[in-house]
Amino acid sequence: MSGFSQALVEDYGSQLLGEAKVYLDQIDLASRKMSELIDGLLTLSRSTRGELRHDAVDLSVLSERLLTELMQSSPERQVAIQVEAGLQAYGDARMLEAVMRNLLDNAWKYSAHAAAPGIRVYAEERDGIRRFCVADNGAGFDMAHANRLFQPFQRLHRQEEFPGIGIGLATVQRIVHRHNGNIEARGEPGKGAVFCFSLSNMPADSTRGEKEV
């Protein structure tokens, strides 16, 4: 559908006036949203299928690469970035990249309106379990609605304020659960959010240190 509407714009755009142009723009927007939804559903489905690999994954290097991509996509934004070095994880490399991509995309998106936006990637040790965390100082959320965060198609912010389809965190949770881990979220409206997840069979690493990206 998007291809046909784009072809109409290219071939007959100069002949479209008034409401006709508005209708065509609405068709194009709806088709792009449908494409995003289908892609999201496919990703959600794949997160619970296929053989689970056990790779050594450097989440620090991965996070730096993903954050660099985000900075290149929005060079006008000035975001303070901190990534702790030596965040070694064990799991399916492809799936763990999807986890970090979704968490960092969210941190980037929801910190867009912060006066001095910042994103931090680090690990914490609690109850003998190491958790990897992504924190931002953006829009945050009301903890009273935290149970909705990981449900497909559930969103806590208006679409016009922060666009999205509500698939990302559901995908993250399914991947983490496939690794016999857990994910939790903490947040406060206007003060940011923190998402921390654990993975099974990960040796604790006492070597830590943050560096600027």
Rank of each mutant, 00 (worst) to 15 (best):
N182Y: 12
D136T: 09
L24A: 08
E36L: 13
A85E: 03
L169D: 07
M95I: 00
S74Q: 15
A204M: 15
K21G: 11
I165W: 09
A7T: 12
L29M: 07
M1Y: 01
N102M: 01
V134S: 03
A30M: 01
Q159L: 10
L37A: 03
L16V: 14
K211T: 13
S63D: 05
L52Q: 02
P203D: 08
A193Y: 01
A114Q: 10
N106K: 02
F4R: 15
G164H: 14
V172R: 04
G168T: 07
Q26D: 01
R174M: 12
S200K: 07
Q26G: 04
E36Q: 14
E210H: 00
F153C: 06
A204C: 11
R126T: 09
D142E: 15
S200A: 15
S47G: 04
P163V: 08
A114M: 00
A98N: 10
T48I: 15
F162D: 02
R186K: 14
Q151P: 03
L149N: 02
G3H: 04
V172Q: 04
V99L: 05
T43A: 09
R130F: 04
R94H: 12
A89G: 06
S73M: 02
Q15W: 06
F132Y: 02
E188N: 14
Y110Q: 10
V57F: 02
L37F: 11
D55V: 12
G164S: 03
H177A: 10
E97D: 07
S200G: 12
Q159G: 05
G168R: 00
N180E: 09
L67Q: 03
A85H: 03
I119V: 10
S63Y: 09
G138W: 04
A115K: 14
G50N: 12
Y90G: 13
T207M: 13
S31D: 01
A85G: 01
R49G: 07
S47Q: 06
I167Q: 08
L87H: 05
H113K: 09
R186F: 15
E210M: 09
A20H: 14
T43P: 04
Y23D: 05
P189V: 11
V176D: 03
R131K: 02
A123Q: 06
Q72K: 15
G18A: 14
G138C: 06
L156G: 10
I165F: 01
Q173G: 04
S60Y: 04
H179C: 04
L67T: 08
A170S: 11
L156A: 11
R130T: 11
L87G: 06
E19M: 03
A115G: 02
R178K: 02
V194S: 07
E161R: 10
V213L: 14
R158I: 08
S31Y: 05
A135W: 08
Q82S: 09
A185D: 13
R148E: 09
S14W: 15
N106C: 00
F150K: 07
I165N: 03
E69N: 10
Y122S: 08
G3T: 11
V134M: 02
F132Q: 03
E64G: 07
I119T: 04
L67H: 03
L37D: 15
L41P: 00
A20C: 13
G192V: 12
